[in-house]
Each structure stands twice: as structure tokens, then as C-alpha cells.
């Protein structure tokens, strides 16, 4: 999934890019309203994070223009203003959500996952709920959630991709390169450490016993495997 981040503060912009990329999204960044609109037209992202106060064209105006091109694409406003008027105007323009500065990464992740779920539900064939089983663990890819008994586990888009790939090739070893390609993208060159760290965190989240993983098994020197 590709996300357009339009934010004039370079550090916030890069931070959001890193945050979203760590969740498994591809990002494109714009530093002003005009650039944001141009990038939206050329790249057609899956959703947009839009700062309100931007040079050249403000977030409201960009949102209006985006809506003319695509009425469906989810838009999340980021704003340092939290006045009443912002919410009302934003909602009238068809914003899907608001993130108020200063924000925490958890809040951003929660809101982005919520928007992603809506997007994935819309993409999925209606009336069907896709469930992938990993023993006691049930994965609901479109929900970005897994369930073990009564416990609900929130997952990132990348987590779901990794698990879906392992499930699809169950019994086979999925090489590290393939995991990179499928889950990070060809252009992205993560370090070996990034992959290992990610798998380690994912295991903590989904494995009954992370020290003796039963879902994501390490195949030394090659990759990982699910023996379902």
C-alpha cells in the first residue's frame, strides 16, 4: 500500500515516512500543497496523510482537489490546530480521520491501521471473511488482527504480509530474499538486522512461546518456514 504524506515540516514528514514504512507501507512525501496534488495525480497512492497548514495550497484545498479526482481514497488530516472549525470543515471535505499534533506513534499507527482495515474490507470480496489458521492462531488479514482463544492481537500490514506469505508456502522454506521482496518491496534494502528484529517482534506478538516458535520457524542460513 502506498501512502502520500503531505507535511511541510521535514522532520515530521520523514518521521512519519519511517513509521509507516516500518508498518509495511510504501510512502511518497510532499512538502507543500501543490507538490502533494501533483504526486497524488502521478502516483495515485492508496491513502493520504495531509497536513492542514502547508505552503502554496493548504490541506483543505488539497483535500477538495483530491476528492474531485478520487472520491473514495482515505484522507487523514494532520493538524496542529484543534479548533472546532478544523474538524467540521475537515469532515465536510470528507476526511476520514484527524491526528492532532503533538501525536504519539501509537496513535498514528492505530489510526492508520483503522483506515487500512476499511480499505482492505472494501477490496475484499463482499460477504466473505478470510481466515488463515496457524494452529490455535487465527489470522484475519483484512482486519490486521489475529486471535488466539480470547486474546486479540493487533498486527501491522507487514506482519500480515509475512504471515500470509508463510501460510501460502506452508511446509516450504521462504528465503530471506523472498521475504524482502514480498514484504518490504524490491526497492527497499533492509539490513539483515531489520528482518531479524521484525521477526523477533512478530514472534513475541503471536507465538504462544516466542522462545520455541511454532509458527515462524528459523531455517538457519536460508530463511523461515511455517510447518502447518
Amino acid at each position: 500500500m502506498k501512502v502520500l504524506i503531505a507535511e511541510d515540516d521535514i522532520h515530521i514528514c520523514r518521521g512519519l515516512q519511517d513509521l509507516l514504512e516500518s508498518e509495511g507501507y510504501g510512502t511518497i512525501a510532499a512538502g507543500d500543497g501543490e507538490q502533494a496534488l501533483a504526486l497524488f495525480e502521478s502516483e495515485r497512492p492508496d491513502f493520504v496523510l495531509l497536513d492542514i497548514m502547508m505552503p502554496k495550497r493548504d490541506g483543505y484545498q488539497v483535500c477538495r482537489d483530491i476528492r474531485r479526482i478520487d472520491a473514495e481514497v482515505p484522507v487523514i488530516f494532520i493538524s496542529a490546530k484543534s479548533e472546532e472549525i478544523d474538524r467540521v470543515v475537515g469532515l465536510e471535505l470528507g476526511a476520514d480521520d484527524f491526528i492532532m499534533k503533538p501525536f504519539g506513534t501509537r496513535e498514528v499507527i492505530a489510526r492508520i491501521r483503522a483506515v487500512t482495515r476499511r480499505f482492505l474490507r472494501r477490496e475484499a470480496s463482499p460477504g466473505t471473511v478470510q481466515v488463515l489458521r496457524f494452529g490455535e492462531l487465527e489470522l484475519f488479514p483484512a482486519e490486521l488482527r489475529a486471535r488466539r482463544g480470547a486474546e486479540v492481537i493487533e498486527l501491522s500490514l507487514r506482519d500480515v504480509r509475512i504471515l500470509t506469505l508463510l501460510h501460502k508456502q506452508r511446509g516450504k522454506v521462504v528465503s530471506r530474499d523472498e521475504l524482502y521482496d514480498q514484504c518490504w518491496g524490491r526497492t527497499h534494502i533492509p539490513s539483515s538486522r531489520t528482518l531479524d528484529q521484525h521477526i523477533s517482534k512478530l514472534r513475541k506478538a503471536i507465538e504462544a512461546d516466542p522462545r520455541n516458535p511454532s509458527i515462524i520457524e528459523t531455517v538457519h542460513g536460508i530463511g523461515y518456514r511455517y510447518d502447518g
Partner: peptide, 23 residues
């Protein structure tokens, strides 16, 4: 206070991003 929000966002976000990098 409004002006403080942007540096504050950065401080918090980068601290959290950095924390994610730690094992």
C-alpha cells in the same frame, strides 16, 4: 503553545521511533 506542538511532535515521534529500533 501552538508553535510548541511541532517541535514536541518531533521529539516524541523520534524518541518513539528510536525506541522501536532498540532490541
Amino acid at each position: 503553545s501552538h508553535e510548541l506542538k511541532i517541535p514536541l511532535t518531533n521529539i516524541r515521534m523520534y524518541a518513539e521511533l528510536l525506541a522501536q529500533q532498540l532490541d
